[in-house]
Amino acid sequence: MALVAALRRLAHVKLRDYSPRMAAVTSSVWLTGQRSFTSRTQCLRSDNKVTVNFINRDGEKITVKGSPGDSLLDIVINEDLDFDGFGACEGTLACSTCHLIFDEDVYKNLGPVTDEEMDMLDLAYGLTDTSRLGCQICLTKSMEGMVARVPESVADIRQSKDGSS
């Protein structure tokens, strides 16, 4: 079962990481899967890190750690979090796919929003008054334990509306 788990873990590595990693590993693939799991555990024990809780599109809570200065998009990528299509423009303020929703008290602590970020947020699905782009939020110690929710994709909204496209 552990092997299956390791395999499953590898299979769902984000696409951008997938091919190079596949090319690099041959017989040591089992080990690599295990190592990736271990490093995550070590990461969680580190003291200098900030804990972030993501709520994914299925409503599941995922707790990870990031370094101060990392953006929330960096964390999603570094931790291989499986949010479909997240960060399409790679943090260059050219899309709205790293849209995250916060509780109001957290939102207030996130720092100022530029016009350019607001412009991109205006194109986001499920925009709320406490929406931000993950690529524009840099972690600080004061954000310890924050919760960031990944909005539902448009499919869910539209399906519940009229059942067709």
Binding site: D84, A88, C95, T97, Y125, S153, V154, A155, S165
Partner: peptide, 11 residues
């Protein structure tokens, strides 16, 4: 925009 196409293609 491109995110619209992304979502509709995932669908």
């Amino acid at each position: 925009v491109i995110a619209t196409t992304m979502n509709n293609s995932f669908d």
